[in-house]
Design a protein around this nucleic acid. Structure first.
Lengths: 143, 143
DNA sequence: ATTGAAAATGAAAGTTAATATCATTTAGCC
DNA sequence: GGCTAAATGATATTAACTTTCATTTTCAAT
């Protein structure tokens, strides 16, 4: 799903909820959808303010809350005390590795790990539908 | 590793760091080691205050920071805005698989998965010191 | 056992991020 | 265009975490 499609999903979500659409919210959402990192509210606000300096923190906060609510964003906490919002990746699911010193986040995907997960779950009688895998360590610059 | 062993690990950690041992810290640590849930600072403070009402929040905070530092506790955030501390389970590290219908939690451990994690991290220049793996799905009774 | 330096404590203050409030503005239906 | 509900932006509040500081305690060296 690309940014344009996501905007459409958002639009129809607003309609079903009887909410109004505004230039600010659209711009915040669009900026978020075009970002490819795990972005915090402050970072997103800064980005948005470049073109629209009068947008307030509260509006960014409320927009991200809305996007999280309708599944277009995922709120994540990596332990540095800040909530980061994950834009649903184009290539589907991925896992994270987080530097415990500088908080840098890298992404990876390993099919074999996922297969082993399924097998481990099966042994316990479970059927996996989703998972969360986070590695914590030191990045090349901090080790 | 049981509570007694953990106290010993803590003690030797304090020694190597040149830190002093105190009744308060020992009691907080012991209380934590004997807990089996993911406990928050407030909860732990409350527990500790039952027998030692004059212990302060800051001391609990500092003790848990210390335990996290030396690997005897793991700080986790489940998205409710509170940090919870996980007591290292007796059987060593394990991962969780959670039933999304009945919330049953099973535990498993797979050495091969951990190895693949290390490898994936290495490719990205990271050194792993810790990880978090949670599978979500249906247990045998709910599937 | 006494002493002195370094660390620990507890209370309180400071910090940070998240959330709520409120007066004003805006969207969208009539 | 006018009306009503929602949105906005600034600010205030809250909650959790972290630091500060005066006092107390530990422990190693007498």
């Amino acid at each position: 799903m690309d940014a344009v499609n996501k905007m459409e999903v958002l639009k129809s979500y607003l309609e079903t909820k009887g909410l109004k659409s505004t230039a600010q919210r659209d711009y915040i959402a669009d900026t978020f959808f075009k970002s490819n990192t795990h972005i915090s509210l402050d970072e997103l606000l800064k980005k948005v303010k470049r073109k629209t300096p009068n947008i307030g923190y509260a509006t960014v906060y409320r927009t991200m809350k809305l996007l999280t609510e309708c599944g277009l964003a995922i709120a994540r906490q990596f332990g540095d005390g800040q909530t980061r919002y994950e834009n649903l990746p184009q290539g589907g699911h991925h896992d994270h590795i987080i530097c415990i010193k500088c908080s840098k986040i890298a992404e990876f995907h390993n099919q074999k790990i996922e297969q082993l997960q399924m097998e481990a779950a099966k042994k316990l009688g479970f059927t996996v539908v989703n998972h969360k895998l986070e590695l914590y360590g030191y990045c090349s610059e901090c080790s």
